[in-house]
Amino acid sequence: MASTDIEAKVVVDARGLLCPMPVVKTAKAMKELQTGEVLKLISTDRGSVADIPAWAESTNNELIEWHEEAGDFVFHLRKGQGG
């Protein structure tokens, strides 16, 4: 699925932030969403590439896709049951 086709309910802009902020901000924002809704995260922290998939797996949220876009790392995450 092309990332432009995914409609995000909320966008978390974590550009310029380092560990642990991208994960912490994502977790906080995800709390406000309903199951099935999508969060878009934009990060410049290279650690996010490992951390966000690990966070998603560990919290029962789904990483739909991620890609690099002009130096930013863009993630689309769908809130899972109890995630």
């Binding site: 560990c19 642990p20 994960v23 994502t26 977790a27 906080k28 966070w55 919290t59």
Partner: peptide, 11 residues
Amino acid sequence: LILATTAASLG
């Protein structure tokens, strides 16, 4: 501090 805040973010 980083590990504890991240652990909390992992639920």
